[in-house]
Nucleic acid binder design. Sequence first.
DNA 1: GCGACAG
DNA 2: ATCTTGTCGC
Length: 245
Amino acid sequence: MDPAITALLAPGIPPEWLAPPDLATARAAQVALAARVLRADAHGPVRLLGGVDISNNRFDPEGRIYAAVVVLEWPGLRVVETAGAEARASMPYIPGFLGFREVPALLAAWAKLAAKPDLVMVDGHGIAHPRGFGIAAHLGVVLDVPSIGVAKSPLVGRPEAELGEAPGATQPLVWKDQRLGTVLRSKRRSNPLWISTGHRVSPEGALDWVRRCDTGYRLPEPTRQAHLAANAVRRAGMAAPPASG
DNA sequence: GCGACAG
DNA sequence: ATCTTGTCGC
């Protein structure tokens, strides 16, 4: 295990839990770690916003994962730093276990940042997950950083009522009598975003932050920039693009 | 038992 | 997730 990465882990997070040997162990780790998720706004002032995403090749026999972390100033939403990393996938994509596939690569990129974000948006679900531990909650808990899940399609739960067509329309995202987040039509004629608490951010707070990061695209700026950055990392075949402004 | 199933 | 430019529709 890379010491640069284990040094990032919050106290009480066993490094070996990042890459469980089998799905049964992975599931147990999710249940244990989900107990640490804070579903309320419990964070300090936000001056730096983070966005993370990964990119990979459809049929790369090497199973390489290219991760990117972008840091944006708040307010302003300008990208002030970008970090990338390449890692081997420890497991294939399995719905419900995305965190184990992508988080290690994200941590490797995170370790390269000069300044860490105060709050991060993740491409995927937070607590809107079978065991309440989607990738946004996963990253948030292992780093103990406030996080928000911004997914492009559903995993569990549904809008409380029919979602309006107008841009800005919302519906509470509910599952098993719990409000986990919000379904948001961020853009006209686009499929909605599935926003949920990751860690240290309430379902309502998560929606507020996503709305503050609207730049006219379907995705909020942090996640949108992270997606572009991850693709750039992969196409360049490099793991450490220089910081930009 | 069967279908659903983030990226 | 990714292969890919222009094109159709609102």
